[in-house]
Design a protein around this nucleic acid. Structure first.
Length: 833
DNA sequence: AGCACGCCGACT
DNA sequence: GTCGGCGTGCTC
């Protein structure tokens, strides 16, 4: 009683109640946070944003993040105590915690999902379950089966064995049974252990032990070694190194690399106390050590753009930098980055895919050297941790990365640049949490009081609209660097050419002629065909049978190169049937033109030219991309046939001609963004042509030369095509005029998925006006990977109402979750999909 | 999410 | 008769 009174008394004086409870975010896809008590000895140490070890469900231990500290005793349950604190300072800055909160609320996902996604695995320690022999157990080996015997014998040799290690010697199916039976017999018990995962990389070095003494007694020492010439030689080598250039220590591996020494002489020298081994930590990622150079002067036009940018930034407005390809956007980026870091702040440059931008990386390395860091999915986990630590210690000024770099613990972020802001890689549909890195950048920047540049040659319609309404400052760079002319577009009416027999296969004679001319000039050609494989349907012309994927509701694509059928949804492979499996007819035909076919045709039409194909299938081999890149750069390749892959990162000086044989294919895809995407793709590839000469030409073969996209793409002023896109979006109530939410429901059993979607639909209809709800209906691809898929599309009004409507959506989802029968239905929610 | 508990089919 | 399937419930 007295204690309680005393505590209250003290806290009143300090105006600070004791914060002995914490809300913890766990790396699990669970709603909300969990309350833990803070042990007395940790109360003064714990801070928001630190990592803590907490028990969760029995003995299992997780690494959680402290989101909040408070003194409200929970009533419904007794909180468990925090086991320990892992950091001596917060690892997640407050701005990032706000960012997580915003993401989870806006994108309707759990914070645990965000935490799991944003942290490198080895910073999230988890306990592992170990087995050990029960002390004092008397084991009767006679009555054990083979697996039990194995396990007991293993435990007698090694005291602790983790669950994952057991898989090595007991069949997976038997593990649980074996363990349970041994626990029942009281022979073994279970224990949980947390171990540090991250290990600094250490390099072994050699040096003299007690250098001074040794040197002073050198004659005696050498005498002592006179019968061991190798030891003597080695000692002298180390001595020489240690006295000569003591700057760089001698690497152990260096000594052995020469092949002169074996391990034995070294061992003897160490035993005799002349030499010692020592270890130094080493960064896994090599920092650039070469010369750095200054940022080049901006041109007149770029100077103008920069001026506008500064004006916008000064009034707290972010920028949409719309610059045609090779207009020098990168140049402007570098200038702003330079400015940011000279103010002592960090800059973040986001790219859609790091691998395709080697030139950009090299260019920046030359400018910023050690102050530059990279962060992307291809780093190993330990490499990620190292970048994390450096960012937290503010050792890096500039970060280049993909979307997950947004979650690095920046101390003082001043600028975010989102390059190629229209790119779909910023919001992949495959990985949760589903968020758009472009939109998220604007929010994160707000929390850091940082500025944002969205850059693109073909901005997204959404960003263009924001700029049109002056929510973003619109800056347009209309001309290529050095006033090089933009490529000329030419529409070829393929129907006419075909009717007058002016075609060969998929190529118009006019295209063939243009390619031939370009080849004669020793220039390069790109042919774009955005469809993988050889043919997209294999069917029987007698009975109409088509080869479907066994897991998905789609036809399989025929890949002639690898001679197999592939499902592009689940990756399932099958061999191509030579007779119809249904009617046994031999009339198996392939329909639908894929990039392999276009490649084959091009190679046949131009037998003397070197033709290469570039798509995910041909680039899967390691370094395939780098090798082809070099070949093109060296001028060894004349014609590059490829999918959308060729539209990114291939900046070569000698590409003059781009041909798009079946351009209509790009437009007629079931997606309200199809035309925008087609425009972006065509525009991006065309930007590869005539970058130096200004004589670039783009041939678009189409059955519909009157289509607005084809008509408007030829104009150098992009205003009209964006107005066309916006008008279309307005007409059909699509973003940016509405806000969309797509809910997908999947289940192994079709009727369950169907009923679940019907039910959720009916709940939504209770709260939302009918005209906002589209569906429930079967998804365009009704089955993927054996899961049946249904969907509901919501088109909600923008602005103030949106928040209310979204609350109703959340309410509906909660009501849906209350039905236990639907818990096995997998639910995906895409906000602004 | 993952892990334990509880009720119905294919095997010794 | 059991073993094991996955439907259901809960986690501070």
């Amino acid at each position: 009683m007295f204690r309680i009174y005393f505590a209250t008394f003290v806290s009143t004086i300090n105006c600070r109640p004791i914060l002995n409870f914490a809300q913890i975010i766990l790396p699990l896809n669970l709603k909300g946070t969990f309350t833990y008590s803070v042990p007395e000895e940790l109360v003064s140490v714990i801070q928001i944003g630190m990592r803590v070890l907490v028990p969760f469900r029995g003995k299992k231990i997780y690494t959680g993040i402290v989101e909040e500290l408070h003194s409200n005793i929970p009533e419904a349950f007794i909180p468990k105590p925090i086991i320990n604190i892992l950091d001596d300072a917060p690892i997640v800055p407050p701005q990032q915690l706000k960012f997580w909160k915003w993401l989870s609320e806006y994108y309707l996902c759990n914070k645990g999902e965000i935490y799991r996604f944003s942290f490198p695995g080895s910073l999230k320690l988890e306990s592992e379950t170990y087995l050990k022999l029960k002390p004092g157990a008397v084991i009767d080996l006679q009555h054990l089966d083979v697996n039990e015997l194995y396990l007991i014998q293993a435990l007698e040799v090694r005291q602790l064995i983790s669950l994952s290690e057991i898989e090595a010697f007991i069949p997976k199916k038997e593990i649980v049974k074996t363990i349970h039976s041994l626990i029942d017999l009281q022979y073994i018990e279970i224990d949980e252990k947390v171990s540090e995962k991250y290990r600094a990389k250490e390099i072994a070095y050699l040096r003299l032990k007690n250098k001074e003494t040794l040197v002073s007694q050198l004659p005696e020492v050498l005498l002592q070694l006179k019968r061991s010439p190798k030891q003597k030689e080695l000692l002298l080598l180390i001595l020489e190194h240690d006295t000569a250039n003591s700057e760089k220590p001698l690497r152990k591996s260096e000594v052995f690399e020469s092949g002169n020494f074996a391990n034995a002489p070294l061992k003897s020298l160490i035993e005799k106390g002349f030499v010692e081994e020592f270890y130094l930590q080493k960064d896994r990622l090599e920092a650039y050590e070469g010369e750095t150079e200054a940022v080049e002067q901006l041109t007149e036009v770029q100077q103008q753009a920069k001026l506008q940018m500064d004006l916008a930034f000064n009034v707290g407005k972010n920028v949409l930098l719309h610059g045609v390809t090779s207009s020098g956007k990168t140049h402007l980026y570098l200038d702003k980055i330079e400015e940011t870091i000279s103010e002592g702040k960090n800059a973040l440059l986001l790219l859609p895919e790091i691998s395709l931008t080697k030139q950009m990386i090299q260019r920046l390395e030359k400018k910023y050297g050690k102050r530059l860091g990279f962060y992307h999915q291809k780093l190993t986990d330990f490499e990620k941790v190292e970048v994390w630590r450096k960012v937290r210690n503010n050792d890096l000024s500039i970060l280049i990365g993909t979307r997950n770099a947004l979650f690095l613990p920046f101390q003082n972020l001043g600028l975010i640049i989102v390059d190629e802001e229209h790119d779909a890689a910023y919001k992949p549909k495959e990985v949760s949490p589903y968020f758009n890195a472009k939109d998220a950048s604007l929010i994160l920047a707000e929390f850091y009081q940082a500025r944002v540049i969205l850059g693109s040659a073909t901005p997204s319609v959404e960003s263009y609209w924001l700029a049109a309404r002056d929510k973003l400052k619109y800056i347009f760079l209309a001309k290529r660097f050095g006033n090089v002319a933009l490529p000329k577009f030419k529409l070829l009416n393929f129907k006419e050419d075909r009717d007058t027999k002016h075609v060969k296969g998929n190529f118009s004679l006019r295209s063939i002629e243009a390619i031939r001319e370009t080849l004669e000039e020793k220039k390069q050609i790109m042919i774009l065909h955005n469809r993988r494989g050889y043919a997209n349907v294999v069917e029987c012309s007698s009975c109409g049978y088509a080869a479907y994927c066994s897991n998905c509701d789609v036809v399989m694509t025929y890949h002639k190169f690898s001679n197999e059928l592939k499902c592009h949804y689940c990756g399932h492979k099958a061999s191509k049937p030579s007779t119809c499996p249904k009617c046994f007819s031999e009339h198996i035909t392939a329909r639908g033109v894929g990039v392999e076919q276009i490649y084959e045709e091009a190679a046949r039409l131009f037998p003397d030219a070197s033709v290469e194909r570039m798509d995910v299938d041909s680039m899967r081999r390691k370094f395939a991309y780098e090798q082809l890149y070099e070949k093109i750069e060296e001028g060894e390749t004349d014609i590059i046939v490829g999918t959308q892959m060729i539209s990114k990162g291939l900046d070569f000086d000698h590409i003059e001609l781009v041909v798009i044989p079946r351009a209509d294919q790009l437009l007629y895809i079931q997606d309200f963004r199809a035309e925008e995407k087609a425009y972006q793709l065509i525009h991006q590839v065309s930007g590869r042509a005539g970058r130096v000469s200004g004589a670039g030409e783009v041939l678009i073969q189409t059955y519909h030369p009157e289509h607005p996209v084809f008509k408007l793409i030829q104009e150098e002023d992009p205003g009209n095509i964006y107005h066309y896109f916006l008008e279309e979006r307005r007409k059909f109530n699509y973003p940016p005029f509405t806000k969309t939410i797509l809910i997908e429901l999947k289940h192994r059993k079709e009727d369950k998925a169907d009923r679940a979607s019907q039910f959720l639909g009916s709940v939504l209809k209770k709260y939302l006006p009918q005209e906002c709800i589209f569906g429930p209906e079967k998804s365009p691809v009704g089955k993927i990977n054996l899961l049946y898929q249904y969907q509901i599309l919501l088109k909600l009004p923008r602005g103030k109402k949106y928040k209310d409507f979204k609350n109703f959506v959340m309410l509906s989802l909660e009501e849906f979750d209350e039905i236990t029968g639907y818990h096995s239905v997998k639910k995906n929610i895409f906000v602004d999909f």
